[in-house]
């Protein structure tokens, strides 16, 4: 009755690799961002910025390619199975998750005891993961808006419009700063929920691509 099996079909190697890239980029971006914001750690500011920019480009390419790959790569769409289908189906509405958003929230708030029926990604989980895409690109946009004014790019109007919209470059800086906290909070909750729902199984698969059998199979 415990956990379902965690098979490699749930997270193909390419996605495990991309998950690593995401993690390294986000951690590096948050750290170098803090250095740029407050220089609490006396390293070269040019170095911190170079790291920040590089990781941002890597992250943008990684996420974009992840989206493209989802149309090609086949992986499991359900929990504890080796049956595969196109990955994009994980990101569209699935019948297993229908009417389960509120129930999932109730479970995490201890308002119900049983875990809810779900597809590989639960309703709440799927929304949170999908939200990381616009948030990441939004962070890229706000970052470029902070960096760009002196660059005189032909596309500068695209960013200048955003700066005018929010009421100035300082407001854009604060939005970028709070955006980083949103990413940090997401990562905290994400890492916690993966750990509490079966640390060894989840972490083993997503980081080391190590399979673990379900509770039923283990006995």
């Amino acid at each position: 009755m415990s956990h379902e099996g965690h098979y490699r079909e749930a997270h193909p190697l390419i996605f495990v690799f991309q998950h690593w890239v995401n993690l390294i980029c986000m951690a590096g971006l948050a750290f170098s961002g803090f250095v740029i914001h407050g220089s609490f750690y006396a390293i070269s500011m040019g170095g911190a910025r170079m790291i920040h920019f590089t990781l941002m480009f890597v992250l943008a390419v990684n996420i974009t390619s992840r989206i493209i790959l989802s149309f090609w790569v086949k992986d499991a769409n359900q929990l504890g199975t080796r049956e595969v289908d196109t990955d994009i189906k994980n990101w569209l509405p699935q019948k297993e998750n229908k009417h389960q958003l509120l129930e999932t929230a109730k479970y995490y708030l201890f308002m119900r005891k049983e875990r809810v029926i779900s597809a590989k990604y639960g309703a709440l989980q799927k929304i949170a993961y999908l939200a990381t895409v616009p948030i990441t690109f939004f962070m890229g946009y706000t970052g470029f808006a902070l960096y760009g004014p002196a660059q005189q790019w032909p596309v500068w109007g695209f960013f200048a419009g955003g700066i005018s919209l929010v009421g100035g470059i300082m407001t854009m800086r604060i939005i970028h700063y709070f955006g980083m906290w949103v990413v940090i909070l997401f990562t905290m909750v994400h890492a916690y929920l993966a750990a509490i729902d079966g640390f060894k199984a989840f972490y083993g698969l997503i980081f080391l691509w190590r399979e673990s059998p379900g509770a039923e199979e283990g006995h």
Partner: peptide
């Protein structure tokens, strides 16, 4: 986390047999 461990949920909670809905 403390609540999850003390309630035994961390060891694996049963999955519902049919949706509440």
């Amino acid at each position: 986390g403390v609540a999850s461990f003390s309630s035994g949920r961390a060891k694996g909670a049963p999955v519902e047999t049919s949706k509440a809905y």
